[in-house]
Write a protein that binds this DNA or RNA. Structure first.
Length: 654
DNA sequence: GTAGGGTTAG
């Protein structure tokens, strides 16, 4: 064995006083100057014992002193000494925490260098290190050469493939593991569940884990809730949640997030309140989902309340993005921009959210200006960002800009145009009256046009009153989406106008056969943090008389300034019975009247609708905003309408 | 003593 030496520590004597320890040259010089001290050097060489080396290595590993632990490891290697597995696992943890890949590999090499396979526990730790470093091949190689794999070895690989979204591998490993006689535990299930992208597989796994009684584990439960939600199986997610005796914050977050992501904001907010009543404090993830719920319901005031909770936490990019989106989708661009400008860190989602926010709310120029700023900032636009840019171009009628970005998106940003990009271009061409070019583009699409693409063309036909093309587009829509009641009605109106009575009858018959019904129009308005819903033909609101009186007064005032109900409904999806009288009682008109009644003039009236706004309501609100000198925002399922000073941000095109 | 969780833009 080679002998290693080290120097004893410096010992100095200053006027009889002995100081020892690793004294710095600076201190020595100081002592010499100020005291004229006699410095005795005792640089005696002493041999190092094996046990000292091991002690030293162990101490540095547990102290998480990576540089010293690594030089001690070199000494061990020279001396051909091996420490115990737990000490190495401490060192590996230290490498992981510091992202020290090279050092980690060195430890790997060392523990295998005595010719024996290290303990399973230690190989598992090394495997996990490679997984966390995203070095799946290295982890797999270690796994392959293991002679004794336990449940942790298998679960480590399953979790690795599951989080890398190599789902088939994760599921395959579960089968191989069981064939090998190793029983999966709660760790295994919580990982493999997330690799499930098929409902029947998920049900099978759910049954298996119920059989072995693992359903009460919070990790398993949150995985089940999460995966059921991602598959849109909210009932199953809720059942899993409700069977809980105890749970934790993440389980609550999973179920709240599940509803928020499936556009059931009401249920998400109800659960959010229930969670707080159950004594849990919201964290960033809870608040992000709560904001998403407010966003889908356009609840500005509730969103503001959530914002107050957000301020308790340190800055969080995802949460800031959610907050930004909430203000955009509630039509409050001033607050959205304030959040955006105060964000210390912005990613592609922050920029896209703000660009799309401006574009959807009709502020196209601002959206395009921001896009230029984004490029200067160095953040690379993605598929969705470009979509926002094209959307902005189509809304401002910027045909040339739109065509430029569309044709150069591949070259400039490396993004192939997708169906939605084509949709924006159809909208852009259609809006500017170039209907033939729009149809040509649809036929040139590299991907198949869907119902949304044709609905976009139909929108253009409505504005430019092209009945022939509208008929063609409507037929395509019904082919692709036979449940679209609005389009049936619109097509039937076209047939009626052109006196194709047989076609009208055929269409009505097929609607009946398919059970297609148009859902009733519904508008929501938030007053004093309360949501008021108005459904067409529903008179159940406690203030109905007051509201009707207000609405009639508004109509009277509007008629005085020249308002005539727009009964040209051929290219709208309104039926006969929705005409004239009932036209005056569309849900958004009632909601607006309630807004005028309940909110002071300086407050913006914000309404969310389930159906597209009809031409008459659009005109009604535009005039009302003008004579009342107030700002009104209506969000329909596709667009935003900001009414102010007699004009609408949509430019009368929707 | 080693393995497992929830959140953002169309």
């Amino acid at each position: 064995m080679k002998t290693l030496w080290r120097f004893k520590e410096n010992v100095i004597s200053v006027r009889g006083l002995v100081l020892s320890g690793p004294l710095s040259p600076l201190l020595l010089q100081h002592l010499r100057c100020c005291s004229g001290a006699v410095i005795q050097w005792q640089n005696e060489r002493v041999p190092i014992k094996c046990s000292d080396l091991l002690d030293e290595f162990t101490t540095y590993c547990y102290a998480r002193d990576l540089p010293r632990a690594m030089s001690a490891l070199n000494a061990l290697q020279i001396q051909k000494i091996w420490a115990d597995a737990v000490t190495y696992s401490e060192l590996i943890k230290c490498c992981l925490a510091r992202g020290a890949v090279e050092q980690g590999k060195r430890v790997h090499q060392h523990v295998f260098s005595n010719g024996y396979e290290p303990k399973t526990f230690l190989v598992n730790t090394l495997m996990n290190m490679y997984v966390k470093f995203n070095m799946l091949d290295e982890a797999q190689a270690l796994f392959d050469q293991m002679s004794d794999r336990n449940v942790v070895s298998w679960t480590t690989m399953i979790a690795a493939y599951s989080s890398a979204k190599i789902n088939n591998k994760a599921l395959e490993f579960l089968i191989l593991m069981m064939r090998d006689g190793v029983r999966p535990n709660m760790f295994t299930f919580s990982s493999v569940l997330r690799a499930c992208d098929d409902l029947s597989n998920l049900r099978q796994l759910h049954c298996s884990l119920l059989k072995v009684g693992l359903e009460s584990d919070v990790f398993v439960r949150s995985a089940l809730i999460d995966v059921y939600s991602k598959m849109g199986q909210l009932k199953c997610a809720m059942c899993t949640f409700n069977e809980m005796v105890t749970g934790d914050l993440v389980v609550w977050n999973s179920i709240i997030g599940g509803f928020a992501q499936n556009s059931d904001g009401d249920e998400a907010l109800t659960l959010f309140k229930r969670m707080k009543r159950a004594g849990f404090s919201a964290d960033q993830s809870t608040l992000t989902s709560a904001l998403r719920a407010c966003t889908s319901l356009a609840l500005l005031e509730v969103g503001r309340q959530v914002h107050v909770h957000v301020l308790k936490f340190k800055r969080d990019l995802i949460l800031d993005n959610a907050l930004l989106d909430m203000y955009c989708k509630c039509g409050n661009l001033e607050d959205a921009h304030q959040i955006f400008s105060q964000m210390v860190e912005k990613d592609v989602i922050s920029w896209s959210t703000m660009i799309i926010g401006y574009a959807q709310n009709g502020f196209s120029r601002k959206a395009l200006e921001l896009f230029k700023e984004m490029k200067v900032s160095g953040i690379r636009p993605n598929y969705i960002t470009v979509l926002g840019v094209l959307f902005a171009c189509s809304h401002a009628g910027l045909v040339e800009d739109g065509q430029y970005y569309f044709h150069s998106m591949k070259k400039l940003f490396g993004i192939d145009p997708g169906r939605e990009h084509y949709g924006c271009m159809v909208d852009l061409l259609g809006r500017s009256g170039k209907l033939d070019e729009a149809v040509k583009l649809i036929h040139e699409m590299e991907c198949e046009p869907d119902a949304v693409t044709w609905r976009t063309l139909l929108g253009a036909c409505r504005v430019h009153r092209n009945m022939d093309l509208a008929e063609y587009a409507a037929k395509q829509i019904i082919k692709l989406d036979p449940s679209d009641a609005g389009t049936y009605i619109l097509l039937s109106n076209i047939y009626a106008r052109t006196q194709k009575w047989e076609d009208v009858m055929d269409l009505r018959r097929s609607m009946k056969e398919r059970g297609v019904k148009k859902e009733p129009g519904c508008s929501w308005i938030e007053v004093n943090k309360q949501i008021h819903a108005f459904i067409m033909g529903d008179n159940s609101h406690p203030q109905k008389e007051e509201i009707n009186k207000e609405l009639n007064q508004i109509i009277w005032r509007l008629k005085e300034v020249g308002y005539v109900p727009d009964t040209n409904f051929v290219l709208q999806d309104l039926e006969d019975e929705q005409m004239e009288d009932s036209l005056l009682y569309h849900s958004e008109k009632i909601a607006v009247a309630f807004g005028v009644l309940s909110l002071s003039r300086e407050k913006t009236i914000r309404i969310r609708k389930n159906l597209r706004i009809c031409g008459d309501c659009h005109l009604f609100v535009k005039l009302l905003a003008q004579i009342e000198r107030r700002s009104i925002v209506i969000r329909d399922p596709i667009r935003y309408h900001h009414f102010q000073d007699g004009i609408c941000s949509c430019g009368d095109y929707w």
